[in-house]
Design a protein around this nucleic acid. Structure first.
Length: 559
RNA sequence: GCGCCCGUAGCUCAGUGGAUUAGAGUGUCUGGCUUCGAACCAGAAGGUCGCAGGUUCGAAUCCUGCCGGGCGUACCA
């Protein structure tokens, strides 16, 4: 690609004295290995006929590329289609799994995603954001970045007050010793139930609402006073730890570990301090007793950073968070991944920070993904308790796997199915969770890819021929596979550039298809072309495994 | 009201800062395992790319208007 691309640039410069960044694509196989529409772009500027320009460029390209190219043809309006020589394609395939982008080399990148709240339950949305965030982190690493995966969550705030209220009610008062009566495996469930109870009563009962508001304030005070000893504090800290333990176990299980949690409580102080400093400088303003940022002058909306009771809102804590990240990591780039409902909120927070720390905002990217919706349009609400839990999704996938008689490596297959179902969709628009489809083991699915890998490994384990390091000519099925393999580095580059893991999914599926088609019609072991085919399949299996690992999906030898 | 996002086959989605004949999966129908793993492969059927204009040699893709849906819009996170 690089060769074709840079040659094209120089050819255009030579022929027409124009500097251009040409579009080079991978067209349908029947047209060639590469295609470009530069001739049509240039025709207008040059006031010349499109195919005439194409002729000129094609001629020069042929000279420059020499025998690495098999043919260069011109199609309809003025496309130039380039077909590489078999040996060239084979060579590209050989290096596909080791040719990585280098654009982020040496950069320190903080990637924040998942962001569940302690005292609440992990639902399908957390599962999704963890999977997609992890894959994006992997892409950054593939491009040479030093990635730090961090997690931000609300260990203080109204939801904690609600849960704590119900806990106190359930335990019969501030009696931390009674926590011992809750079995380890039932802790998360108990807290989830308390949150639902607390939320409902907050909505329905005015008297209780005041109590919960007061509890919320007490929780902040408990942090301010570094209180770990009072009964209320012991209750709080124990349950907070239960939440983090529960998160850790879950992340470990799905293979998306974090190196650091930023509890909101640890961002509150620096957040408030920063906001107050900037209040004095006029970035933030007093309004109705609260401290706000007026976004209207930037086409955004106004948001409260410190409420009229002096408590920092999520906004101020997010300000604190970005300060903390910078102190801890001195990042070159910070990426925050959340669902799209946070988009305009985050725009306000970042715009406010831009007024006093523009360099931090410049280095920050807010990536958004969709909200997971239920098929049929049922709205999920953790307040009402009608949510799809993350563990339920995994359980459903496990059942599906069992049904088809899942053999070895069940857990890898289950996670492969779930992760791939989420990752294959373009990041951004909302997605619909369909328990049947999302857990699919056939067709365009994770297990399809894992199976296509296991099959290849199985063949390789039976082969004995010495590998062939080069190929002068290939049969059509072999060539299709080789060509597909050769696209890998370009796909990774694109996925990194756009922070879009789904490009990898689409590609890997096409790659596995190319292999399955090859497999259908050709023998490997014992064939006279065994050497070449074994080598080709080795390259293929490497690329497939590497690509899956970028997605956070394991490629077992057998399944 | 204003702002952001979305509308492609029955269903779930690729394709979207221009390009060759709109593609997958799934579901329905059909064919293929004495041969390296059938979680596979091959074929059929299925689409006014929400609607209407506009720009262009060329529009699912860009622009405008409209219709439909989601989210956000001051003291929740």
């Amino acid at each position: 690609m690089q060769d074709v691309y840079s040659t094209l640039v120089s050819v255009v410069r030579d022929a027409f004295n124009i500097d251009i960044q040409p579009e080079v694509s991978r067209p349908d196989e029947q047209f060639g290995d590469y295609a470009t529409n530069v001739a049509m772009q240039l025709a207008g500027r040059l006031r010349r006929n499109q195919s005439e320009v194409a002729e000129v460029l094609a001629g020069k390209l042929k000279e420059q590329l020499g025998d690495t190219v098999k043919s260069i043809t011109i199609a309809k309006p003025g496309f130039i289609n380039i077909t590489l020589d078999d040996a060239t394609i084979y060579g590209l395939a050989a290096h596909a799994s080791t040719t990585k982008p280098t654009g982020l080399r040496g950069q320190v990148i903080v990637a924040e995603y998942s962001d569940p709240n302690p005292f609440k339950v992990l639902h399908v949305g957390h599962l999704y954001t963890s999977v997609v965030g992890h894959a994006i982190g992997n892409l950054f690493e593939a491009a040479g970045g030093e990635v730090h995966r961090v997690n931000f969550g609300g260990d203080v705030g109204l939801h904690v007050g609600k849960t704590m209220w119900a806990m106190l009610d359930d335990l019969g008062g501030e009696r931390p010793e009674k926590l011992a009566g809750i079995p380890k495996e039932g802790r998360a469930e108990w807290m989830a139930r308390c949150y639902v109870t607390g939320s409902n009563i907050y909505d329905d009962d005015e008297h209780t609402r005041d109590e919960i508001t007061a509890l919320n304030k007490r929780i902040y005070e408990l942090h301010d006073n570094n209180d770990h000893d009072s009964p209320f504090a012991r209750l709080y800290w124990t349950c907070r730890q239960w939440s983090y333990d529960y998160f850790d176990r879950f992340y470990e299980r799905i293979g998306t570990p974090f190196e650091k949690y930023y509890p909101e409580s640890e961002c509150a102080e620096i957040g408030i301090k920063t906001v107050r400093e900037q209040l004095a400088k006029g970035v933030y303003e007093q309004s109705d007793g609260a401290v706000v940022f007026k976004g209207e002058k930037y086409g955004l909306h106004t948001r409260v950073f410190i409420n009229s009771q002096g408590i920092p809102t999520y906004e101020a804590k997010d300000v604190g968070l970005i300060m903390r990240k910078q102190q801890d990591y001195h990042f070159d780039r910070s990426v925050v991944i959340t669902d799209n409902s946070q988009e305009q909120y985050m725009a306000v927070v970042l715009k406010s920070i831009e007024q006093f720390r523009p360099e931090l905002v410049k280095a920050t990217t807010h990536l958004v993904h969709g909200v997971v919706k239920m098929k049929g349009g049922t709205k999920m609400s953790s307040r009402k308790g009608n949510i799809l839990r993350a563990v339920t999704v995994l359980g459903t996938a496990r059942e599906a796997n069992k049904k088809i008689g899942g053999r070895d490596n069940d857990e890898a297959t289950v996670l492969g199915a779930v992760k791939y179902a989420f990752l294959k969709q373009r990041m951004g628009p909302d997605l619909t969770y369909d328990p049947d489809e999302s857990v699919s083991l056939d067709g365009n699915s994770g297990p399809y890819l894992q199976y296509a890998h296991a099959r290849a490994r199985s063949i390789l384990s039976k082969a004995s021929a010495e590998p062939a390091t080069s190929a002068n000519s290939m049969q059509p099925n072999e060539r299709s596979l080789a060509r597909k393999i050769s696209e890998y580095p370009e796909v990774i580059q694109q996925a990194v550039n756009e922070c879009m893991p789904h490009y990898v999914c689409t590609y890997l599926y096409e790659l596995a298809q190319a292999f399955n088609r090859f497999y259908e019609h050709n023998r490997v072991v014992g064939d006279e072309r065994e050497a070449l085919r074994v080598t080709l399949i080795t390259y293929y299996a490497q690329v497939l495994k590497d690509g899956l690992s970028l997605l956070g999906i394991k490629a077992p030898e057998r399944m």
